[in-house]
Design a binder for these strands. Structure first.
Lengths: 202, 202
DNA sequence: GATTGTAATTGAACGATGTTCAATATATTT
DNA sequence: AAATATATTGAACATCGTTCAATTACAATC
């Protein structure tokens, strides 16, 4: 059989992506194989390669859509005023999103590109605009001239929250129960921001 | 061929472990395969399964020895006095160790057990005694009665440093240059500890 | 409408992977 | 010397991602 006209190239792309997400949601990212994917959409494994260069490219696409959805989840409602409340609300939405999308989130953070491969250029802005939300709320704590310090804080908080959520999610370190993650994050924000206030006297 | 007496069971175990570490150091943890491992020690792939239940068990063993070495690296010299200097020194030794053992460290934090499998009981104390070092230095910041708060801080700082080192190491988020990781960690310690001091007034 | 060109789809194949296991050969015990 | 136990192997199994010649349907051209 060849050249069915069941779907356009574009439809097929979306079909593959949707089926891949389903598999990851149901079975985790170890369950995502080309043959299972092909079976689910009623095409052959080879057809996937007509639409994606390889499985890594597929995964990157899923990751990208996840980041878009995180942005959506984090910005859909207005944030409360005040630095700490805003940051805590952001972190809470982040953690809730991660918990609601555990398997997909694991895909995003546990998947490693083969050595030498790099993420496509369009990928990074999706992250940057997430960082920008944090930066906006953090800026009042710093002197206008000290843009470097703000950038540092944003990245530090992002990495910190990621570290907590990651260790809580995998349980690998047995450090943090999933419930306790939010507690730790609140602690981090409370004390870090207090420290910044104290050290910057603003 | 069968039943050579080249090595005792114990020697073979150590041979396998040593060869596995070499491979990971040289090629990253994706390079670690049973056949390559077998070839390097001059045995067949099947022999590895005489000594380790499977590859995951082997990796856990490598992880464990790495944690032991980290403990060694972190405690070999006395820490400076004062909370911030001690914590920063600890973090610095941690980061240096991670940088000096990048591929092995990636193995430790990127390897995931298959769903359902759990780490053996003897694994966790190796982590706990690392956390205990941090806790010892952090305790002066807290009221004696507030043991929960100290525990939170320890785990939070550990997860935060892990998050920073992890994102710096993988470059996946393009957030942090490897050089900048230490800067972020210092920032975290400086401001977090200042915040704890301010909030606890001790 | 017939001919040509283009692009999609497949199934088989390739070289890997982790793991299992009967067969075998050596040590050890009786 | 015979019997038992154990270490070792190599082939086999079921996977995996990926490639590609062959096939077929559609689109463009005449």
């Amino acid at each position: 059989m060849a050249r069915r006209a069941d779907h356009t190239r574009d439809e097929l792309t979306k079909l593959v992506l949707a089926a891949a997400r389903e598999i990851v949601v149901e079975e985790g990212f170890r369950g995502l194989t080309t043959r299972k994917l092909a079976a689910r959409i009623g095409y052959s494994a080879g057809s996937i390669y007509n639409v994606f260069h390889n499985i890594d490219a597929l995964i990157i696409e899923i990751d990208a859509s996840l980041l878009d959805e995180l942005f959506e989840a984090v910005t859909s409602e207005p944030l409360p005023g005040g630095v700490e409340p805003a940051l805590k609300a952001l972190a809470r939405r982040y953690v809730v999103f991660v918990q609601n999308n555990q398997n997909l989130w694991n895909l995003l953070f546990e998947h490693r590109l083969p050595p030498g491969e790099v993420l496509p250029d369009w990928y990074y802005p999706k992250l940057e605009r997430l960082l920008a939300i944090v930066e906006e709320r953090l800026r009042p704590l710093f002197d206008d001239s000290d843009a470097a310090a703000v950038g540092r804080s944003v990245r530090l908080l992002w990495a910190g929250v990621h570290g907590i959520a990651s260790l809580a999610g995998t349980g690998k370190l047995k450090i943090i129960s999933s419930d306790g993650a939010m507690e730790l994050i609140d602690d981090l924000i409370d004390n870090y921001v207090a420290g910044v206030r104290a050290n910057n006297r603003i």
